Simulated assay, not measured.
Amino acid sequence: MKVIVTGGGTGGHIYPALALVKEIKRFAPHSECLYIGTKKGLESDIVPRAGIPFKTITISGFKRKISVHNVKTVWKFIRGTRKARKLIEEFGADIVIGTGGYVAGPVVYAASKMGVPTIIHEQNSVPGLTNKFLSRFVDKVAVSFKESSTYFPSDKVSYTGNPRASEVSGEKRENPLGDIGLKEEKKTVVIVGGSRGARPINEAFLEALPAVGSKKWQYLYVTGSVHYDKVIEEVKKAGNPENVVIKPFIHDMPAVLSYADLMVTRAGATTLAEITALGLPSILIPSPYVTNNHQEKNARALSENGAAILRTEKELDAKILLKDIDEVLSNEETWKSMNRSSLKLAAPRAAEHIYHLMEELMTPQ
Rank of each mutant, 00 (worst) to 15 (best):
Y109E: 09
G197I: 00
K22H: 13
S169Y: 02
S135R: 03
V5D: 05
A260D: 09
D155I: 00
V264S: 04
S135M: 04
I232T: 12
S303M: 03
I36Q: 11
S330I: 00
T223W: 10
P153K: 07
D139V: 00
T270Y: 01
T118E: 09
I309P: 05
F249A: 08
V126R: 13
H121M: 06
E233F: 02
T291M: 03
F54Y: 15
Y219Q: 09
V68Q: 11
A204Y: 13
V192D: 04
N331R: 08
L302C: 04
E122R: 06
V235M: 15
S258K: 05
T188Q: 10
S341C: 11
S341H: 09
K186A: 09
G181S: 12
S154G: 02
R26W: 01
R311W: 04
S31Y: 04
C33R: 00
S158Q: 10
P348C: 08
L302V: 01
S195F: 05
A267V: 02
K314S: 02
P281R: 08
A347G: 10
G101E: 15
E171F: 02
G61A: 07
E122C: 05
A255E: 15
S125V: 01
I59E: 05
P241R: 15
R82D: 09
Q295S: 03
D252M: 01
P364D: 06
A260C: 07
A299H: 11
L262Q: 08
E242S: 14
N292F: 13
I180Y: 14
P241G: 14
I119A: 05
A93W: 15
F205Q: 13
I180Q: 13
V328H: 10
F91L: 02
K2T: 03
R199L: 13
L220F: 08
V143L: 07
E32Y: 02
H121I: 00
P176C: 14
T265E: 05
F137Q: 07
S303W: 04
T276K: 03
